[in-house]
Amino acid sequence: MAANLSYDPVTKHVSALDTSEGYIEEVDALNRLTKDLVSSGLEVPENGEPSKQQTAMIQKLVNSAMDAMKRRAYAEAIKNITVAIDAASRRKRWEAFQVQLQELIGFLQLRTDAYMLSAKYADALVDADLLLLMTALTAENFLRKGIALLNLGRYDEARVVFERGLCFHEGNDKLVQHLAVSKKLIAEENGDAV
């Protein structure tokens, strides 16, 4: 069998000799898992309780981000959250998924707002889109995605988002208001009477 891997017994690192697409990704994933397992010091991965240390550190970062938001230092806030997300992503891969999911949802919601307020609409859009994909189907998240789209000039897509938001949150004022705004913008873009 052709050797696609080379193993370094000192670092316990595996490196890819096969450079085809996806192979490197898999090798990285393996190394990551090995590192997790080794550093946990356990024989086999134990039940996925999130590490308290990491949680504390992450919380600190989040707090400083929220602080920056209050001071309107959006770039700083974004940086802090991104670091927090990276820190969170270093959790053991076998730690409870739901916990990691909820954590990420919280981060992204914060970051989306920061992006929006610093006019980085495209970044805000993809974050908000991921939030909805993670089934965090709150009215706020629909608003986040929709408003990002409006600011990017994509009025038809925004209208679709607001309409979907209203399916889950019937009569929500902000959604209704923004739906009307998107319809108005569509009519303007088409030269139609509003």
Binding site: L117, A119, R144, N151
Partner: peptide, 14 residues
């Protein structure tokens, strides 16, 4: 933008 976009539509989601 390739099209006309509204003036600063800053998001206040809250």
């Amino acid at each position: 933008f390739p099209n006309q976009t509204p003036h600063k539509q800053t998001a206040t989601v809250k």
